[in-house]
Design a binder for these strands. Structure first.
Lengths: 250, 250
DNA sequence: GAACAGCCTGACGCAACGTCAGGGTCAAGC
DNA sequence: GCTTGACCCTGACGTTGCGTCAGGCTGTTC
């Protein structure tokens, strides 16, 4: 097949295929004597994968590394795509629900607080993050353990985990609001609860690892944003409490 | 509120807010004496809308025209956002189903045809298109009529409409495959059926309007791609048949 | 009053293409 | 065998939506 046909089949432009060729993401396996690109069935396979990952928001360079990884078999890709798509499904449902909530509120003549309205953008951990996390920690024991446990979780398990973490986040927020110092006993106790929660639900989280997480809460702006959305100053607060707790343990 | 706080609340970067200010999409309603941006609650409202439309894939310039349209009240935006989100939900479900189908096929040791695998990218009419269509035809009587009728449609109605149009597309494809000329009686009859289908389900489609549609099938590459995915050469075939039929009527 | 986080305005960089420009190629029809 | 029109090629520049410094003011805190 030549470019035009492939483009029509896949619903992309010819220019896009040229681009993928240029950057080495998808080079047709052959050329005619006159230089026309010739796409084989396996090229179409690859294009299909590329488009799925692209749709999920992956940068093309990352798509290339994913697809060129010899350790990742086709089924692994399918499983990952399936998981990411379900994540998106959940996220979109949440947004639909949020819009419906707002419509309802409006029709009753009331309006929501800004926090409530931005909430849905907050329940994040979107596709991009999942991929980055895997790249960062994919080869650690903790990641493997976490993957194993979360794979076995049912919907109910997830709700329970979410409720647990909401609760500990509330404890932090209340302590902050009450003016309790972040390195106080009370805050450190919440931090310890946080650590044990992670250990129970995801992976064995040592105080050292927990301290590392704590640092990330202020260094990675997405984590910062997550906590700041719950309460201003909470990211720094949790970070300090977690690190103080780690020091106390050690 | 100043930039940093708004950014944390909404889960975007400060740079993004600067950008929105620069392009006039969202300018804070005030500045301090020293030039600091000050965001009011209504600025937050607008930001919320912006982020929703952005999430749905609208270019920022279009978001601006949407939000600055004095004729569009907040509820209209909510309704549109709701519709677009549900479209995305349907589309994502379809993709999940497609991946599951492929996983199943693989586990049984068989593989799908390329057409089957790209199908899901094909059932298009995504968010962007809906917006463009409205911009193009939003002020025509046909558009209003179509909006009115489609609003009243149930899920079952949609399935029926989809089945009808699939059937007429198959008639075209079979005629093409059989080598029947596009301006033959048989092809023109299919075209006439197509026109009446549009008139029944969407808006009164005169032969002239139908001829215009026909031209678009070869001029707009997305329509072309749609028909080409059913069968190679079908876009041109349908276009010719539709225009020949219009000439026959006139 | 010194330190440090937070804000400002340029200005350049980048990803993923869109969009010509200028020029060969292929199939169909005369 | 020649034209015509659709299709292909390779540059090369343009666009969107920010990221990422750089260089400099502001505001709070100890």
């Amino acid at each position: 097949m030549n470019v035009g046909q492939v483009a029509a089949l896949a619903g992309v432009t010819v220019r896009t295929l040229h681009h993928y060729d240029r950057i080495g993401l998808l080079s047709p396996s052959g050329r005619t004597a006159t230089g026309y690109r010739q796409y084989s069935p396996s090229d179409l396979d690859r294009l299909h994968q590329v488009l799925l990952y692209r749709e999920l928001g992956f940068p093309l360079e990352e798509v290339a590394t994913l697809l060129d990884d010899p350790a990742a078999d086709p089924e692994a890709h399918l499983r990952r795509q399936h998981r990411l798509l379900r994540d998106r499904l959940d996220r979109t449902s949440a947004m639909v629900a949020a819009v419906e909530k707002e419509m309802e509120a409006r029709s009753m003549g009331m309006s929501l607080t800004p926090e409530e309205r931005f909430e849905v953008f907050g329940d994040w951990l979107p596709e991009e993050y999942a991929a980055e996390a895997e790249e960062k920690w994919g080869d650690t024991a903790a990641w493997a353990q976490s993957q194993q446990r979360t794979r076995a979780m049912t919907k109910d398990d997830w709700l329970r985990v979410k409720a647990e973490s909401d609760a500990v986040e509330r404890r932090f927020a209340e302590a902050l609001h009450a003016g309790v110092p972040a390195d106080s006993e009370r805050a450190m106790d919440a931090a310890e609860e946080h650590r044990q929660q992670i250990s129970r639900n995801f992976y064995d989280c040592s105080p050292e690892m927990h301290a590392g997480l704590g640092r990330m809460y202020v260094e990675d702006e997405r984590f910062t944003a997550y906590y700041e959305r719950i309460a201003p100053g909470l990211a720094q607060y949790v970070s300090t409490a977690v690190q103080a707790n780690a020091a106390r343990q050690g």
